[in-house]
């Protein structure tokens, strides 16, 4: 492996972007394929499929063996609101293998006592997201019901192309949210990406059940995302 290729690969990984190291096994020839790179033909299809599934493996094309080593950033969840549902969501996310962090400027909610072992930011979301920006491998769940806290990170998540954007609230609440986001300059299509009411429809009633419904919806969005097709197709493919 060329050191230059390793540097490129590590830089992509450090920036939380997906990349594939493509190696022709016989010759050792290799290339780093980034998220936005399109390749033609059967190899291109194999690369796009691998980028989507996140699965590494050997493919044989035209009598040649290629190894596709897929590096996908670990998915993470940013929950806005240190609320009861977030308390239930934290251990569920951990079980499913997703990093989770919680942002809530209300220090009465965001206490270590309520969220032992979970990354917690008792700050305004705008401030935290400036330090720790959202990306396409991040899911955002807005859970405070409070537009002062929820709206800004929702806008940021839609603009970034987070693989999942969900917001808690009844249809009526979401109707008002839709109007605010339109007024803030977002388009209908962008706003339609928000999962609201949040969570898969399993008639969830308790905070624990709602957390399960949210987690299931996030998993579905992550596993079905269309990374290699670019942000436009990805948006169209999401619920």
């Amino acid at each position: 492996m060329k050191l230059d290729n390793l540097r490129i690969l590590n830089a992509e990984r450090a920036r939380r972007r997906a990349a594939i190291l493509l190696t022709e096994l016989d010759s050792g020839a290799e290339r780093v394929i980034g998220e936005g790179d399109r390749e033609r033909g059967e190899l291109g299809e194999a690369l796009a499929g691998a980028m989507r599934s996140g699965k590494s493996g050997v493919v044989e094309l035209g009598g040649r063996q290629y190894f596709l080593n897929v590096h996908v950033p670990p998915p993470r969840i940013v929950a806005i609101g240190a609320v009861h549902i977030s308390q239930a969501l934290a251990p569920i996310a951990r079980t499913a293998g997703y990093d989770l962090e919680i942002i809530d400027p209300r220090t009465a909610f965001a206490t270590q006592e309520r969220f032992a072992g979970t990354t917690l930011h008792a700050e305004w979301p705008e401030l935290v997201l400036r330090q720790r920006p959202l990306d396409r491998y991040t899911a955002l769940a807005a859970l405070t019901h409070d537009p002062k806290i929820d709206d800004a990170p929702l806008v940021a998540a839609l603009k970034t192309g987070c693989f999942y954007v969900g917001a808690l609230g009844s249809r009526k609440t979401h109707g008002r949210r839709r109007e605010r986001l339109l007024a803030a300059g977002l388009g209908e299509a962008e706003i339609n990406r928000i999962a609201a009411p949040i969570g898969l429809d399993i008639a969830a009633a308790t905070p624990g059940e709602i957390a399960v419904a949210i987690m299931a919806q996030i998993i579905a969005a992550f596993r079905r995302r269309a990374v290699a097709a670019g942000p436009e197709a990805e948006r169209a493919a999401l619920p």
Binding site: L3, L6, R7, L9, N10, R13, R15, R16, R132
Partner: peptide, 21 residues
């Protein structure tokens, strides 16, 4: 830890660091 850093026990980061040494 910043979100933009690679984890401490990252083999490919180690390989790069070793080569650069």
């Amino acid at each position: 830890m910043s979100a933009n850093d690679l984890p401490a026990l990252d083999e490919l980061a180690t390989a790069q660091a070793w080569a650069e040494e």
